Computed example of a mutant assay.
Amino acid sequence: MNTTYQGQNKQTALITGAAGGIGYQLACLFAADDYNLVLVDRNGVMLVEIAAKFQEKFGNFVTTIVKDLSIPTAPEEIFAELQQANIKVDVLVNNAGFGVYGLFHETDLAGELEMLQVNLVCLTHLTKLFLKDMVKQGEGKILNVASAAAFQPGPLMAVYFATKAYILSFSEAIANELEGTGVTVTVLCPGSTASAFHERTGMADSKLLKGKKMMDAQTVAEIGFRALMKNQTIVIPGFMNKLLAKSVRFVPRNLVTKIVRNMQEDK
Rank of each mutant, 00 (worst) to 15 (best):
L39A: 12
N86K: 13
E76S: 10
M115I: 03
L69V: 03
A51I: 02
Q83C: 11
L126F: 04
F79N: 02
F130I: 15
V89E: 00
Q84M: 10
N95F: 03
D133F: 04
G99V: 13
V145R: 09
L120C: 12
K67L: 09
L109E: 06
A110Y: 10
M134T: 02
G59D: 05
K53T: 13
E56Q: 14
L103E: 15
T107A: 13
K57L: 15
G59R: 03
L47E: 03
L131C: 09
I50H: 08
A146I: 06
I65F: 10
E106A: 15
Q84P: 00
E106P: 00
E114C: 08
V100N: 06
F61A: 15
H125R: 08
E139Q: 13
K136Y: 11
K53P: 00
A52Q: 14
A51T: 05
K67N: 03
N43Y: 03
L120T: 14
T127E: 02
K57V: 12
D68P: 00
A110G: 05
F54I: 13
N144A: 03
N94M: 06
L47T: 06
A146D: 01
L129D: 02
G59Q: 09
N86G: 05
T107P: 00
A52G: 14
L92E: 01
N94W: 01
K67E: 15
V45E: 12
K57H: 14
K141S: 06
L82Y: 12
R42T: 10
N119M: 04
N60S: 04
H105A: 09
L131F: 06
G138P: 01
L103F: 11
N86R: 10
L37K: 02
I142A: 08
A52H: 04
